[in-house]
Design a protein around this nucleic acid. Structure first.
Length: 465
RNA sequence: UCCCCGAUAGCUCAGUCGGUAGAGCAGAUGGCUGUUAACCAUCGAGUCGCAGGUUCGAGUCCUGCUCGGGGAGCCA
């Protein structure tokens, strides 16, 4: 199939092909549209390497099998490149030979005009062939690389935490169960409960809702680490910002306290925004033009701004004084609602902010208790339009304090003994945060539904493809 | 899980007061000397989401269900 001798459309469009190589070119790709008249025909060819199509010019249409080529067909074209007289492209390809690789039946659902995202979600196996989803998938790849690049450059190690787990990271969310038990013939104990000793792992197991606890183990041994992997939440939440399967980034730093971590969060986010603008220019231009006009300006402004930093208590004071009617009344001790977060970041600060030191009762057990005995060293990073984009905390490194908190919450201490051991043997201050990969993709691109930034979205009631 | 909105041709959508289905695009056929969502002409295309109900008559009104969207909660 001349795989290695073919030329990518991207390289032709962006001038990476030397002019002495113009004579003999082979391209492979899918037809986006075809325009035929009696003495000339044009084919727009896309090979997935770029948003841009290559215009194939066919000078004697009768001599080519154009009847069998339509939108969606895959073809191989041999010919030569030339400067194009047309206004829409600088280079085009004159076809000398066209070989049909795969024909298309007339019921091909993708057309050259715009489709709704709702419709395209129903054909997730074909939507990557559209402009938007081609851009989104290439962008996703580039940003995944950017995340690794940032942490590797900062001296972090990439670690793999288990996907099947028996610890449920308390409060992070409902777990999907993993079992090999016969659901039609369950081993029942005398008291009516299921005997999980007979299950594959000899105990209850599920898919990970967070790699944080295991990341702490690695951080307390090899220093700064990060995870970047799939995460599963069996929550029945049906919104444009939640998926049952998503990719999460969880950095964990040893010998690190909250303030240092906040510097890292701000630096990391700005790095990603800058990376997108500089290294995904084609994608960002597309988003800026078709998805959300002004997206680029928003990112540029944030890169230049210093994130606001306030405590939860200060945030409550601001909200209490706000000249704004909230559906949920503001009072110290409540969890901040979407409307509160939006007011703070969009109206009061008008930029990303980090809110710290939340009441301990609305946060997880492992967060470090402040001296006031009421608040914990947690941080949420809030950005305009999306709301919470990062959540993290300094971890409780004092054995006695952590144990007391776990007992207070009635947790099963035995299950978490390994976690407590970290505080028993050479404990160090450490901190970490979590970032939803799809959330950051949504924020940078302006795409408004999480189902459109992951190729095969998993949501309640839907796991097709 | 709760609240609101929607479902009509392959796609996007119109369908008035309840009177029996319509446009653009796509597809097929023909035409056109350089097109850019090409253009022009002709043709085919429908269990109006599903199940009931009201009515002489339902795409239209009512009830239930399914699926989709937006918002809320929960969170990343």
């Amino acid at each position: 199939m001349d795989y290695f001798s073919r030329t990518r459309v991207k390289d032709i469009i962006y001038g990476n092909v030397r002019e002495e190589d113009y004579r003999d070119i082979t391209v492979l790709g899918w037809v986006r549209t075809k325009r035929v008249s009696s003495n000339i025909a044009f084919i727009e060819l896309n090979d997935g390497s770029s948003l841009k199509n290559l215009q194939i010019v066919v000078l004697e249409p009768d001599k080519f099998p154009l009847d069998r080529i339509s939108t969606g067909s895959s073809i191989k074209v041999k010919g030569y490149l030339e400067a194009s007289p047309g206004a829409e492209q600088s280079v085009e390809m004159k076809a000398e030979e066209i070989i049909i690789v795969g024909e298309v039946t007339p019921d091909y659902p993708l057309q050259k005009k715009r489709h709704s995202f709702e419709f395209l979600r129903e054909i997730a196996h074909l939507r990557p062939r559209t402009n938007t989803f081609g851009v989104v998938n290439r962008f996703r790849s580039k940003m995944a690389y950017a995340i690794h690049k940032y942490f590797q450059e900062q001296g972090f190690y990439y670690i793999h935490t288990p996907i099947i787990t028996t610890s449920d990271a308390e409060g992070a969310g409902e777990m999907f169960r993993v079992t090999t038990l016969d659901l039609y013939n369950l081993p029942i104990l005398e008291d009516g409960r299921i005997n999980f000793k007979e299950d594959f792992f000899g105990q209850e197991a599920g898919l990970t809702v967070s790699g944080q606890l295991e990341a702490e183990v690695l951080a307390c041994a090899i220093g700064d680490v990060y995870t970047f992997g799939p995460t599963f939440r069996a929550e029945n939440s049906n919104t444009s910002r939640h998926a049952s399967e998503f990719w999460m980034i969880e950095p964990e730093m040893a010998f690190c306290e909250l303030e240092e971590m906040m510097d890292i969060i701000e630096d990391f986010l700005k790095y990603l925004f800058r990376y997108a603008l500089e290294n995904a220019e084609e994608e960002m231009q597309f988003f800026n033009q078709w998805i959300d006009k002004g997206r680029i300006k928003i990112l540029e402004d944030i890169i230049d701004a210093e994130f606001g930093r306030i405590t939860y208590t200060e945030a409550i004071e601001i909200l209490e004084k706000a000249d704004e009617k909230f559906e949920f009344p503001v009072k110290w001790g409540i969890d901040l609602q979407s409307e509160h977060e939006r007011y703070l970041t969009e109206k009061y600060f008008k930029k990303p902010i980090m809110v710290t030191d939340y009441p301990k009762d609305i946060k997880a057990f492992y967060m470090r208790l402040n001296d006031d005995n009421k608040t914990v060293r947690a941080v949420d990073c809030l950005v305009p339009q999306v709301g919470e984009i990062v959540g993290g905390s300094q971890r409780e490194e004092r054995y006695d304090v952590l144990l007391a908190r776990m007992k207070e919450l009635g947790m099963d201490i035995e299950n978490y003994q390994w976690f407590l051991d970290l505080r028993k043997y050479g404990s160090v201050p450490h901190a970490g945060f979590g970032l939803g990969f799809e959330r950051i993709l949504m924020y940078i691109s302006g795409m408004s539904n999480i189902r459109d930034v992951i190729p095969f979205p998993r949501t309640p009631g839907n796991a097709r493809f």
